[in-house]
Amino acid sequence: MSQRIRIATTSLAGCFGCHMSFLDIDERLIELSEKIEFDRTPLTDIKTLGHCDIGLIEGGMGNTENYELLREFREKCDILVSMGACAINGGIPAMRNSFTLKECLETAYVEGVGVTDPQIPGDPEIPLLLNKIHPLHEVVKIDYFLPGCPPPAEMFWTFLDQLLNGQPIEFTYSQIHYD
């Protein structure tokens, strides 16, 4: 009886587009499901993270909750993967790094069109935003990078297929793009 590879995924300051692109491997998901099983991911109902072989993370690190989850993923996943432009360089959300956090919050919650009772949300239940969006590798060690916004489905397939078969990871020219 062979042990199935355990995979966790999460989205930090992401748009869920990387997860959608992963699902774009379509019916090959069935083939994959014989070799892997999911731990905590937006696709399952598991709330706490267990020990995993692979952790796939989309999105940059933008708030305190992102930070905690990223640290936890690193602790519990043997192989940690930055997937997508946001995880790699902050992506489009990192365009807010050109402004101060105060400017961003005031534009949305104080000066925003149609805002009533203008105030910046301050409930302790809401994670605090960090001054800047950061790529994941500035916080924890990342083992593999899958570029793209999002990475193409073929890249996900190539990556998992080669990794699960113990082959060196090699992408074709058309699989590598940053946009």
Binding site: A85, I92, A94, M95, N97, C149, Y173, H177, Y178, D179
Partner: peptide, 23 residues
Amino acid sequence: VEGNHVCPACEKSGACQLQAVAY
């Protein structure tokens, strides 16, 4: 890392020499 190369939001993406050399 020295600049803000946000390829997903750049008009030059796909026709950019920096990006093409990196590929």
